[in-house]
Simulated scan of single mutants.
Amino acid sequence: MAMTLQAAASGCHAMAPPMATDSVRRLQSSTFLAGSPGGRLGSHRPLRWSEKLGAGFVHVRKASLHSPSCALVLKERCAGAATQGTGRVNMEDTYTIELDSTGKEPAFFGVYDGHGGSAVSEMLKTTVWPIYKKKLSDPDVVRATRAAYLEIDQLTLMQPKGLFGALRERGLGGSKCGATAATSVLIPKPDGSKVLVTANVGDARVILVRGGQAIQLTFDHKPDVKEERDRIEAKNPTPRKPLVQNVGGTWRVGGLLALSRAFGDVYLKDWTDNKQDGARGGFGLTAEPHISVETLTPDDQMIILGTDGLWELGNQEVVDICLAAGDSASPEDILKTLFKVAVEKGVTDDLAGIIIKL
Rank of each mutant, 00 (worst) to 15 (best):
M3W: 10
A7P: 09
A9D: 12
C12Q: 15
C12A: 07
G35L: 03
G35N: 03
G39V: 10
S43E: 07
S43Y: 03
H44K: 11
P46K: 08
R48W: 06
W49H: 11
E51K: 09
E51C: 08
L53D: 12
A55D: 10
A55T: 08
G56F: 14
S64I: 00
S67W: 02
P68W: 02
V73K: 07
A79P: 06
A81S: 11
T83I: 15
D93V: 05
T94Q: 02
I97W: 07
A107D: 13
A107G: 06
D113N: 06
G117R: 03
T127M: 12
S137M: 04
S137T: 14
P139H: 06
P139F: 10
A148W: 13
E151K: 13
Q154E: 15
T156N: 06
T156W: 05
M158T: 15
M158F: 04
L163G: 08
G165P: 02
G173C: 00
K176G: 10
T180P: 07
A182S: 11
S184F: 15
V185S: 05
I187H: 04
G192Q: 06
G192A: 11
L196A: 12
V197I: 15
A199Y: 00
A199R: 01
A199W: 01
V201W: 04
L208Q: 06
Q213A: 08
V225K: 07
E227R: 08
E233K: 10
K235Q: 12
K241S: 13
P242T: 06
L243A: 01
N246M: 09
G248R: 04
G248M: 09
W251N: 11
V253G: 01
R261G: 02
Y267H: 02
D270P: 12
T272E: 15
D273R: 05
Q276M: 11
G278P: 04
G282W: 06
F283H: 13
G284P: 05
L285V: 15
T286S: 14
T286F: 05
A287R: 09
P289D: 05
L296T: 01
L296N: 05
T297H: 00
T297C: 09
T297D: 05
Q301G: 02
L305Q: 08
G306R: 08
T307K: 10
E312P: 01
E312A: 06
N315M: 08
Q316N: 00
E317N: 14
V319W: 02
D320M: 10
D320Y: 01
A325G: 11
D327Q: 14
D327K: 08
A329R: 14
K336E: 09
T337I: 06
V341G: 00
V343K: 00
D350C: 10
